[in-house]
Structure formats: structure tokens, C-alpha cells
């Protein structure tokens, strides 16, 4: 029997998170990350046969690095976010699974993010997220996010969060 209450609760949290990102309320967004959060975006490539894995990911941020990204944009001179991007995060297909031997849960979701910049510039980002949520003080916090963008060649430089 699925834990419907837990699923609804987490879906609600992910929807609220998407609104925080789209409304650029990053300080509040940071509150939903654990102190030891890890935000990872692996390299996607088409590989045939037995070859060495990618040497490093696209992103592997800890909390400090996430804060650095936000601090950079707050300087007012971060051109890739000046003027600010408009984003629309659509998060769907949320499923929640137990992680054996852990009180954290594995939350898989899909996302479609449209980023609009300046007059006509835009990027469409789609992919999947594998999140680990940790129970903290009666709610859930994001302990780890793995973002799998469906792109081998990124449509533009990344200056937003997924």
C-alpha cells in the first residue's frame, strides 16, 4: 500500500520549491536544503561498449558553492542573469520510495523548465531529478539532488537551478 499522505506532502513541497525558484526567492529556497546538501549534474553522453566513465560531472555543488552562485548574482554584475532570467519550472511524475537502511526517501521527478532571457532569447530544459529528502523537524529537507538533463550539448550556459 503506497504511502499516499507522504507522497502528497512531498509533491506539495516540490511544487512550492518550484514556485520559490520561479519567484527568485532564493534565500527561502536555501532553507529547504540541508547543510550537507549535494547538488550534482552528471555529464550525459552517448557511450558504446566498455570505456572509462566521465572524469567529472557538469556540476557538483555543496552548500557553499550554491551560496556562491547566489552571491554572484546578487552583485548586480552577473551578466548571465542580468537582466534576470524568467523561469517556469514544471515538475511532474513524482514518485517516492523508501531507501533501505535510511530514514531518507528517494524522490524521482521529471521537469520541464523554460528559461526566457532579454527579448527573444530562451532555453528549454527537460530532464529527471533524483532527490534524497531527509526528515527534519517534522518536515522534509533536500539532502541530495541529482539532475539528469536530457541534453548532450547544452542549449546555453547554465545560470539557473533545476
Amino acid at each position: 500500500m503506497a504511502n499516499w499522505e507522504r507522497k502528497l506532502e512531498i509533491e506539495e513541497l516540490l511544487a512550492r520549491e518550484a514556485h520559490l525558484l520561479d519567484e527568485r526567492r532564493f534565500k527561502e529556497w536555501l532553507e529547504w536544503l540541508t547543510d550537507d546538501v549535494e547538488y550534482v549534474m552528471p555529464l550525459r553522453e552517448y557511450v558504446q561498449g566498455d570505456v572509462a566513465p566521465a572524469g567529472h560531472p557538469i556540476i557538483r555543488d555543496d552548500r557553499t558553492m550554491i551560496e556562491v552562485r547566489l552571491a554572484k548574482d546578487e552583485t548586480g554584475y552577473s551578466h548571465s542573469e542580468l537582466p534576470e532570467s524568467m523561469t517556469c519550472h514544471v515538475v511532474s511524475n513524482v514518485v517516492v520510495d523508501d531507501i533501505e537502511g535510511s530514514n531518507e526517501v528517494l524522490v524521482r521527478s521529471t521537469f520541464l523548465v523554460r528559461q526566457a532571457r532579454k527579448l527573444r532569447d530562451e532555453a528549454w530544459w527537460a530532464g529527471r531529478r533524483l532527490d534524497r529528502l531527509r526528515p527534519v523537524d517534522g518536515t522534509w529537507k533536500l539532502a541530495r539532488r541529482e539532475v539528469h538533463l536530457d541534453a548532450t550539448i547544452l542549449p546555453r550556459g547554465i545560470s539557473i537551478f533545476f
Binding site: M41, G55, H56, P57, I58, I59, R60, M65, V68, R69, K72, S78, H79, S80, L82, R117, K118, L119, D121, L154, R156, G157, I158, S159
Partner: peptide, 27 residues
């Protein structure tokens, strides 16, 4: 390696600002 992908790299702190300039130049 970490300093490479945190800097002059698709999602680093440096390269996206270069891309932004090229877009503005084109326009």
C-alpha cells in the same frame, strides 16, 4: 578538476557570462 567545472565551463561561474556577451554582440 573541480576548479575547471566550477569556472570556465558550461555551468561554471565564468563561461555563462561570456556566452551572454556573444548573444548581445550578435543582436
Amino acid at each position: 578538476a573541480q576548479r575547471v567545472f566550477q569556472g570556465q565551463h558550461p555551468a561554471g561561474l565564468i563561461a555563462p557570462d561570456d556566452v551572454e556577451n556573444f548573444e548581445r554582440i550578435l543582436e
